[in-house]
Design a protein around this nucleic acid. Structure first.
Length: 576
RNA sequence: UGGGGAAUAGUGUAACGGUAGCACGAGGCGCUCUGGACGCCUUAGUCUAGGUUCAAAUCCUAGUUCCCCAGCCA
């Protein structure tokens, strides 16, 4: 059976008749499958999503959430929810609630496995004592400046702290007194006794505990010392018996330290795997900057529909399905990459195309009068709700002598390849009638068209052409008498450059904010929208996908544009 | 002559010594009561230089470029 590396056989022996698509696994799924095969963790897959509650979740977190919860789902394992809340000066209950809500909205759950690093403070303290007893940790009196100085540089080794060789007894006493609140904030730290000459600066006697009097969102004032992330994270994963501790690339340098703690403590040792965080064009992703956009009032809040936060995307009209689809498509790797925002937008279009009810709405209204249509008459015409989904049925839309069409759907002098309305040209009013433009009234001052006059062909009711004739253009419209006014918020990219950081020396990314990222217009929408509720989504035919904003009220509808439809005409026109 | 990572079409991501494929983008055609959707086609890639091999994106050697690390942040 076995043969040396010979030439490949002519035919593919392994190809089965019904060739199922090859399983395209990312490198983490491969590790998990390998582990499952070898029984490394006894067949268990247990991950966790461990955010710090110091800000809102963004699309980058969604990648990690989909990865961690997705792995558990795919391999019949579990994924814990855990907050890394070791720095009370930055963390707030508001953030834990928003984070939990966002993850649920995304479609993931954790049953009763909601944990907090702060739940483990007592255990962490005991482990710190254990390391002191083992001679592997010491209380250090150096000031922050001195610590930095003693640490050395990236190219030069550090020097040992003069407090490094205190006795176990003294360390035990001092550490107990740190906890008891005998020393002021920042006066001392507990440090790991590792190696001040290590080329990895994380190993140069990393700080384990600092004295910090701040009220913790969960433990209140019970503690005045708090463990550092580095002394916390790995042990939390250990306590929860996590199998695969998935984190982002920047923690790769910390892995030896985590390993050192866990080995020194002799406790369960999860496997850490690092992947590249998500970057997107035309936006920023760091928590610092998102916070800055909010506090600097550059956006209306964490849930501003221009923000890449999950709260913002949700309000923008992004669906959980579209975000999950996006995360699946971008893959997972160790290469620092920047995904084009069109990839995200396309995932939304793909989801909404299938599901969004179609509706007619005129964003920039231009009046049309059908001169040969009886005044005062209104008839109801049937419109298909979703051509992608026959089960969605149809609805009635009113039609009358006076209508509004999209300003852009009429040109007095049509450019080449323009298929819409212009003098002498016949177009179809979608689900209505075929109409021909006979004349146009214009504003004497500006020359802008104010009223377009047409005649209609009564034989084309419903938009049909019994004689089989073709029209090049089909445009949308609303009946003047029945249309509803609605506020529409037309959103565009938050930044005008792909890379927000592309600024002249000394400049700020804020200079790249797109001044047109929000344009508000008053639209006229068909009356069926009267009862639309917040979060309902629609396709405004030929325009884009819109969602009802939370600000919307009956009689004062507000729609957010989630994403526009692909616009081939815009491309043609741009080229000309 | 600090350490740790990473390099595949424009952007991402597969191919695990044996036909470099997929998605998005871009360009074109068809179809269409949405210039949408859908279908078809085209464009375009293994960081560089050597080496091993019948065969290299994959293995080896050397180089290049990019990212991360000197918080009592996470």
């Amino acid at each position: 059976m076995t043969s040396p590396n010979g030439p490949p056989p002519e035919s593919q022996p392994d190809k089965s008749e019904n060739d199922s698509p090859p399983p395209r696994l990312n490198f983490i799924q491969e590790i998990v499958e390998d582990d499952l095969r070898t029984g490394k963790w006894g067949g268990r897959v247990h991950t966790r999503f461990p955010p710090e509650p110091n800000g809102y979740l963004h699309i980058g977190h969604a990648k990690s959430i989909c990865l961690n919860f997705g792995l558990a789902l795919k391999y019949g394992g579990l994924c814990n929810m855990r907050f890394d809340d070791t720095n009370p000066s930055k963390e707030e209950e508001e953030y834990v609630q928003s984070i939990l809500a966002d993850i649920r909205w995304l479609g993931f759950g954790w049953d009763d496995r909601l944990y907090f690093a702060s739940d483990y403070f007592e255990q962490l303290y005991d482990w710190a004592v254990q390391l002191i007893q083992a001679g592997k940790a010491y209380v250090c009196d150096l000031t922050p400046d001195q610590v930095r100085e003693y640490r050395g540089t990236l190219t030069q080794p550090g020097r040992e702290s003069p407090f490094r060789n205190r006795s176990v007894a003294e360390n035990l006493d001092l550490f107990a007194r740190m906890r008891a609140g005998e020393f002021p904030d920042g006066a001392r730290t507990l440090r790991a006794k590792v190696d001040m000459a290590s080329p990895n600066v994380n190993m140069r006697d990393s700080v384990m505990y600092r004295i910090l009097r701040a009220t913790h969102h969960r433990t209140g004032d019970a503690w005045c010392i708090y463990p550092m992330y580095d002394f916390t994270h790995g042990q939390c994963d250990s306590i929860e018996r996590i199998t695969h501790s998935i984190c982002t690339l920047e923690f790769e340098n910390h892995r030896p330290l985590y390993d050192w703690f866990i080995e020194s403590l002799g406790i369960y040792h999860p496997q850490q795997i690092e992947f590249a965080r998500l970057n997107l064009t035309y936006t920023v992703m760091s928590k610092r900057r998102l916070l800055e956009l909010v506090t600097g009032k550059h956006v209306s809040g964490w849930d501003d529909p221009r923000m890449p936060t999950l709260a913002g995307l949700r309000r923008r009209g992004y669906t959980p399905e579209s975000i999950r689809l996006f995360c699946e498509r971008i893959g997972v790797a160790k290469f620092n990459s920047t995904i084009e925002i069109s990839q995200l937008e396309n995932a939304l279009r793909e989801d909404l195309n299938r599901r969004a009810p179609r509706v007619m709405a005129v964003l920039r209204p231009l009046k049309v009068v059908i001169d040969n249509y009886p005044a005062g008459k209104t008839e109801l015409l049937e419109a298909v709700n979703n051509p992608e989904d026959p089960a969605a049925g149809s609805r009635q839309v009113p039609f009358s002598r006076e209508l509004y069409i999209e300003d852009d759907d009429f040109r007095e002098v049509p450019p080449k390849k323009y298929h819409r309305l212009s003098p002498g040209v016949e177009v179809r009013l979608r689900y209505g009638y075929l109409v021909t433009c006979t004349s146009v009234e214009k504003d004497p001052q500006t020359g802008q068209p104010t009223v377009v006059h047409c005649t209609y062909d009564p034989a084309t009711r419903g938009g049909n052409t019994p004689d089989g004739r073709k029209v090049k253009g089909t445009i949308h419209w609303v009946s003047a008498g029945e249309a509803l006014k609605a506020e529409v918020r037309l959103y565009d990219h938050l930044f005008k450059t792909e890379n927000a950081d592309e600024v002249p020396p000394g400049g700020s990314y804020l200079q790249n904010l797109n001044p047109d990222s929000l344009v508000v217009a008053t639209a006229l929408v068909e009356p069926s929208l009267a009862t639309a509720k917040a979060a309902d989504f629609f396709q405004f035919e030929r325009q884009g996908y819109f969602v009802v904003d939370q600000d919307s009220r009956p009689g004062a509808l507000v729609f957010n544009r989630s994403v526009s439809l692909r616009d081939t005409w815009a491309k043609i026109e741009k080229k000309a």
